[in-house]
Write a protein that binds this DNA or RNA. Structure first.
Length: 385
DNA sequence: AACGGAAGTC
DNA sequence: GACTTCCGTT
């Protein structure tokens, strides 16, 4: 009420918080779990939001390589952040302190020598989008990273047990209904949190990380569109957003960074599980679930077989249409500076999610992944392409 | 500008 | 836990 700060950019009624057209983050990343008791947006989310809003290109923008961005107007970013957090006295000094705390979490790191330039640990973003994928490739991915395998204890943590944990079915008490994309879990279980933290340590007490994305994750296209991605996989293209009909400005997707998904999205590989395996009712009926899979998953069991992280992650990877329309999304884009206060304490509760139990599949998938992970990259790529 | 410790807030 | 605030240091 008295806090005339919050932008409704991400709190449009018809749309859950943190609508990010180019990125898809599992709901657990949206807060309740990552910060028990708090529902506020995290700074890195906010940064990502700004980064993909065309209107803030002069404030903050992707620049340089791979995940690197420049805060062109520190004061403005701080101001926006302050508005978002109802911290009128926010400034860049404080904001940057918060950013520095991300260094240890491996979410960000500083691009030395470049003023106001930071870099996302991009692999983590990919991880968030395609957790299973990343896990599947973890061995050789990490092997290629500057902080590879032997030096990376995390690499060894991706054990079948970890997978098991990640895939473990929900507790019996967990609600069994699926919720539409963007609805977030409210009654998310600790198990879920544990699963996530196992897979995405950076969100917790993370350890590993690579400053450079694994080569398999492909360099950004400098000139070519989608085809430049070795496996037609745009890590920033979640596919979880209204594609057809959406009118996201192409400029939101700098070609050198991530091609315009709307214009260049190739026919994606569908990992749509069989109808019997997926409760399609939760999906927008007219919107085919789709996802661009990297070749590494090309030979993995698809349709009805691959059923990674049943629930949130899967649906995102499948390109579920978010609640609300693109039009509203766009309309809200320019309202970051909204001064509507009511949002300050508004709640954005979402329905609980569910996880399906597929023990057989789990075993199968785990074996497959393990096999894949143990193969040389080339061989794997070949086999998968 | 950038860093990071320390204490405080929610 | 994720900042916010303050501040001394590089």
């Amino acid at each position: 009420m008295d806090c005339s700060c919050v932008s409704d950019l991400l709190l449009t009624p018809s749309m859950p918080a943190l609508w990010t057209p180019g990125f898809a983050f599992p709901d657990w990343a949206y807060k309740p779990e990552s910060s028990p008791g708090s529902r506020q947006i995290q700074l890195w989310h906010f940064i990502l939001e700004l980064l993909q809003k065309e209107e803030y290109q002069n404030v903050i923008a992707w620049q340089g390589d791979y995940g690197e961005f420049v805060i062109k107007d520190p004061d403005e970013v701080a101001r926006l952040w302050g508005i978002r957090k109802c911290k009128p006295h926010m400034n860049y000094d404080k904001l940057s302190r918060a950013l520095r705390y991300y260094y240890n979490k491996r979410i960000l790191h500083k691009t030395k020598g470049k003023r106001f330039t930071y870099k996302f640990n991009f692999s983590k973003v990919v991880l968030v989008n395609y957790p299973l994928l990343d896990m599947a490739n973890s061995s050789f991915l990490l092997a290629q990273s500057p902080f590879s395998g032997a030096h990376n204890p995390e690499c060894g943590s991706l054990t079948p047990e970890a997978l098991q944990t990640l895939f473990s079915p929900p507790r019996l008490g967990d609600p069994g209904n699926r919720s539409p994309l963007f609805e977030r879990q409210v009654q998310n279980s600790e198990a879920e949190k544990l699963r996530m933290e196992t897979a995405f340590p950076f969100l917790g007490s993370g350890v590993s990380g690579y400053s450079k994305p694994p080569s398999l994750l492909a360099p950004y296209s400098r000139n070519l569109p989608f085809t430049d991605y070795p496996w037609s996989f745009n890590p920033y293209l979640s596919g979880a957003f209204p594609l057809a009909g959406s009118k996201l400005p192409g400029s939101l997707y700098p070609p050198h960074f991530y091609p315009n998904p709307l214009a260049q999205m190739p026919t994606p590989v569908s990992i749509l599980p069989g109808e019997a395996n997926l409760e399609r009712s939760a999906l927008t009926p007219s919107t085919p679930a789709r996802v661009c899979l990297p070749p590494s998953l090309g030979t993995l069991p698809l349709r009805g077989e691959l059923h990674p992280l049943p629930g949130r992650t899967e649906r995102q990877a499948m390109g579920e249409t978010p609640v609300g329309g693109a039009k509203e999304d766009l309309a809200s884009d320019s309202e970051l500076e909204i001064t509507d206060v009511s949002e300050c304490s508004s709640e954005n509760d979402f329905s609980p999610d569910s996880v399906e139990e597929r023990p057989g599949l789990l075993q199968h998938t785990m074996r497959k992944y393990k096999a894949l992970a143990n193969k040389p990259k080339e061989a794997t790529a070949g086999q998968l392409s």
